[in-house]
């Protein structure tokens, strides 16, 4: 039930965002995430954006996996 899925913000109007989830366009409220702006990836839960997805941190984590795999 705490499932949240990554969505890309396309545009924001009046605290409602048009987001893209796997090629499908949906609506999400950004009232819980005032810093969100178009182009951001966010985690979406029950119709609300609840957290920004930090792309740099994602790359860092992947880099760690890659180093690990390269070391084998």
């Amino acid at each position: 039930m705490c499932l949240a899925i990554p969505a890309k913000i396309i545009e924001i109007n009046n605290q409602m965002a048009n987001v893209e989830v796997g090629g499908v366009s949906r609506q999400a409220s950004v009232i819980l995430l005032p810093d969100a702006s178009p182009g951001n990836y966010v985690l979406m839960h029950a119709g609300f954006a609840i957290s920004l997805v930090d792309e740099e941190e994602a790359l860092e984590t992947i880099k760690l996996f890659e180093q690990l795999a390269a070391g084998q």
């Binding site: 705490c2 839960h45 609840i50």
Partner: peptide, 8 residues
Amino acid sequence: GFETTAPT
């Protein structure tokens, strides 16, 4: 729900 849901 938990803190994920309660703010919504």
